[in-house]
Protein backbone atom coordinates (compact mmCIF):
# COMPACT_ATOMS: atom_id res chain seq x y z
CA UNK A 1 0.00 0.00 0.00
CA UNK A 2 1.07 3.51 -0.73
CA UNK A 3 0.68 4.57 2.90
CA UNK A 4 3.36 2.23 4.08
CA UNK A 5 5.92 4.02 1.96
CA UNK A 6 4.91 7.40 3.30
CA UNK A 7 4.99 6.32 6.86
CA UNK A 8 8.49 5.06 6.40
CA UNK A 9 9.77 8.32 5.06
CA UNK A 10 8.12 10.23 7.81
CA UNK A 11 9.75 8.19 10.54
CA UNK A 12 13.08 7.58 8.83
CA UNK A 13 15.84 6.94 11.34
CA UNK A 14 13.28 6.37 14.09
CA UNK A 15 12.05 3.27 15.78
CA UNK A 16 8.50 2.23 16.42
CA UNK A 17 7.35 0.35 19.45
CA UNK A 18 5.41 -2.73 18.59
CA UNK A 19 3.41 -5.19 20.66
CA UNK A 20 4.32 -8.58 19.21
CA UNK A 21 2.19 -11.67 19.46
CA UNK A 22 1.91 -15.15 17.98
CA UNK A 23 -0.70 -16.67 15.81
CA UNK A 24 0.21 -20.22 14.78
CA UNK A 25 3.82 -20.22 13.76
CA UNK A 26 3.99 -16.59 12.72
CA UNK A 27 4.83 -13.57 14.80
CA UNK A 28 2.78 -10.44 14.31
CA UNK A 29 2.97 -6.90 15.59
CA UNK A 30 0.76 -3.86 16.09
CA UNK A 31 1.89 -0.34 16.76
CA UNK A 32 1.85 0.20 20.51
CA UNK A 33 -0.03 3.43 19.96
CA UNK A 34 -3.00 1.34 18.85
CA UNK A 35 -2.76 -1.23 21.63
CA UNK A 36 -4.59 -0.15 24.77
CA UNK A 37 -3.98 -3.14 26.96
CA UNK A 38 -3.51 -6.88 26.91
CA UNK A 39 -5.89 -8.96 29.01
CA UNK A 40 -6.35 -12.62 29.75
CA UNK A 41 -9.24 -14.49 28.20
CA UNK A 42 -12.55 -13.65 29.81
CA UNK A 43 -16.03 -14.93 29.18
CA UNK A 44 -17.11 -13.87 25.70
CA UNK A 45 -20.79 -13.37 24.99
CA UNK A 46 -21.67 -14.80 21.62
CA UNK A 47 -23.55 -12.45 19.29
CA UNK A 48 -25.76 -14.44 16.94
CA UNK A 49 -25.75 -13.53 13.27
CA UNK A 50 -22.70 -11.31 13.66
CA UNK A 51 -19.95 -11.61 11.05
CA UNK A 52 -18.19 -14.95 11.46
CA UNK A 53 -14.87 -13.53 12.62
CA UNK A 54 -16.70 -11.67 15.37
CA UNK A 55 -16.23 -13.88 18.38
CA UNK A 56 -18.64 -11.89 20.51
CA UNK A 57 -18.50 -9.08 23.05
CA UNK A 58 -16.88 -8.75 26.44
CA UNK A 59 -17.50 -6.47 29.39
CA UNK A 60 -14.38 -4.45 30.03
CA UNK A 61 -15.02 -2.33 33.11
CA UNK A 62 -18.55 -1.53 32.03
CA UNK A 63 -17.75 -0.99 28.38
CA UNK A 64 -18.85 -3.44 25.70
CA UNK A 65 -15.92 -4.42 23.50
CA UNK A 66 -16.41 -6.50 20.37
CA UNK A 67 -13.91 -9.31 20.06
CA UNK A 68 -12.42 -10.46 16.81
CA UNK A 69 -10.78 -13.85 16.45
CA UNK A 70 -7.78 -13.15 14.25
CA UNK A 71 -7.48 -16.79 13.30
CA UNK A 72 -10.98 -16.79 11.82
CA UNK A 73 -10.37 -13.41 10.28
CA UNK A 74 -7.29 -14.71 8.49
CA UNK A 75 -8.92 -17.97 7.52
CA UNK A 76 -6.65 -20.01 9.76
CA UNK A 77 -7.95 -23.10 11.55
CA UNK A 78 -9.65 -22.36 14.84
CA UNK A 79 -8.01 -23.75 17.95
CA UNK A 80 -9.12 -24.14 21.53
CA UNK A 81 -8.18 -21.16 23.66
CA UNK A 82 -5.29 -21.95 25.96
CA UNK A 83 -3.84 -20.49 29.11
CA UNK A 84 -1.53 -18.32 27.03
CA UNK A 85 -4.36 -16.97 24.81
CA UNK A 86 -4.74 -13.22 25.22
CA UNK A 87 -7.00 -10.42 24.10
CA UNK A 88 -5.20 -7.37 22.76
CA UNK A 89 -7.51 -4.40 23.25
CA UNK A 90 -6.88 -1.91 20.48
CA UNK A 91 -8.11 1.54 19.57
CA UNK A 92 -8.62 1.88 15.88
CA UNK A 93 -9.86 5.31 15.03
CA UNK A 94 -12.73 5.84 17.41
CA UNK A 95 -13.42 2.13 17.71
CA UNK A 96 -12.23 -0.05 20.54
CA UNK A 97 -11.87 -3.67 19.53
CA UNK A 98 -10.29 -6.70 21.18
CA UNK A 99 -8.42 -9.23 19.11
CA UNK A 100 -7.74 -12.78 20.26
CA UNK A 101 -4.20 -14.00 19.73
CA UNK A 102 -2.46 -17.27 20.66
CA UNK A 103 0.02 -15.54 22.95
CA UNK A 104 1.62 -12.17 23.49
CA UNK A 105 5.42 -12.07 23.35
CA UNK A 106 6.72 -8.65 24.24
CA UNK A 107 7.01 -5.00 23.33
CA UNK A 108 9.92 -4.45 20.95
CA UNK A 109 11.48 -1.56 19.08
CA UNK A 110 11.74 -1.97 15.35
CA UNK A 111 13.83 0.55 13.42
CA UNK A 112 11.69 2.00 10.66
CA UNK A 113 14.26 1.19 8.00
CA UNK A 114 13.98 -2.49 8.93
CA UNK A 115 10.35 -2.57 7.92
CA UNK A 116 9.80 -3.75 4.38
CA UNK A 117 6.74 -3.87 2.21
CA UNK A 118 4.75 -7.02 2.54
CA UNK A 119 5.56 -9.85 0.18
CA UNK A 120 2.68 -11.21 -1.89
CA UNK A 121 1.45 -13.89 0.45
CA UNK A 122 2.20 -14.70 4.04
CA UNK A 123 0.80 -17.88 5.41
CA UNK A 124 -2.32 -17.38 3.36
CA UNK A 125 -3.17 -13.98 4.80
CA UNK A 126 -4.27 -11.41 2.27
CA UNK A 127 -1.77 -8.56 1.89
CA UNK A 128 -4.50 -6.03 2.58
CA UNK A 129 -4.10 -6.74 6.29
CA UNK A 130 -0.36 -6.27 6.26
CA UNK A 131 1.45 -2.99 6.58
CA UNK A 132 4.92 -4.42 6.22
CA UNK A 133 7.35 -6.93 7.63
CA UNK A 134 9.76 -5.90 10.36
CA UNK A 135 13.11 -7.60 10.85
CA UNK A 136 14.54 -7.84 14.34
CA UNK A 137 17.67 -10.00 14.57
CA UNK A 138 16.53 -13.21 12.89
CA UNK A 139 12.84 -12.69 13.61
CA UNK A 140 10.27 -11.57 11.10
CA UNK A 141 7.38 -9.61 12.54
CA UNK A 142 4.35 -9.10 10.37
CA UNK A 143 2.98 -5.62 10.99
CA UNK A 144 -0.81 -5.62 10.86
CA UNK A 145 -3.03 -2.89 9.52
CA UNK A 146 -5.78 -3.06 12.13
CA UNK A 147 -8.04 -0.71 10.20
CA UNK A 148 -8.39 -3.38 7.56
CA UNK A 149 -8.89 -6.08 10.15
CA UNK A 150 -12.04 -4.44 11.45
CA UNK A 151 -13.35 -3.15 8.14
CA UNK A 152 -16.39 -5.03 7.01
CA UNK A 153 -16.91 -3.79 3.50
CA UNK A 154 -19.18 -5.38 1.00
CA UNK A 155 -16.52 -7.39 -0.72
CA UNK A 156 -15.48 -8.91 2.54
CA UNK A 157 -19.06 -9.70 3.44
CA UNK A 158 -19.46 -11.43 0.14
CA UNK A 159 -16.35 -13.49 0.73
CA UNK A 160 -17.74 -14.33 4.09
CA UNK A 161 -21.00 -15.44 2.58
CA UNK A 162 -19.04 -17.55 0.11
CA UNK A 163 -17.12 -19.27 2.83
CA UNK A 164 -20.29 -19.88 4.79
CA UNK A 165 -21.96 -21.39 1.77
CA UNK A 166 -18.95 -23.56 1.15
CA UNK A 167 -18.90 -24.58 4.76
CA UNK A 168 -22.55 -25.56 4.82
CA UNK A 169 -22.43 -27.72 1.70
Amino acid sequence: MAETGNDKQQFSGEKIKVVSFRLGTEEYGVDIAQAQEVIRMVEITHVPRAPRFMEGVINLRGQLIPIIDLRTRFGMPRVEKTKSSRIVVTDIGSKRVGIIVDSVSEVIDIPIENIEDAPEMIAGIGTEYIQGVGKVADRLIIMLDLTMVITTDERRDLELLDSQLTAST
Binding site: V47, P48, L64
Partner: peptide, 18 residues
Protein backbone atom coordinates in the same frame (compact mmCIF):
# COMPACT_ATOMS: atom_id res chain seq x y z
CA UNK B 1 -25.73 -0.07 25.53
CA UNK B 2 -25.41 -0.02 21.77
CA UNK B 3 -23.41 -2.80 20.20
CA UNK B 4 -20.33 -1.34 18.66
CA UNK B 5 -20.39 -0.13 15.06
CA UNK B 6 -17.83 -2.84 14.44
CA UNK B 7 -20.41 -5.53 15.14
CA UNK B 8 -22.83 -3.90 12.75
CA UNK B 9 -26.61 -4.10 12.66
CA UNK B 10 -27.88 -7.48 13.61
CA UNK B 11 -31.48 -8.42 12.89
CA UNK B 12 -33.25 -9.31 16.09
CA UNK B 13 -30.74 -7.63 18.40
CA UNK B 14 -31.05 -3.99 19.40
CA UNK B 15 -28.16 -3.73 21.83
CA UNK B 16 -26.75 -5.23 24.96
CA UNK B 17 -26.72 -4.64 28.66
CA UNK B 18 -24.39 -5.49 31.49
Amino acid sequence: KPLSVVVGRIPGISGATI
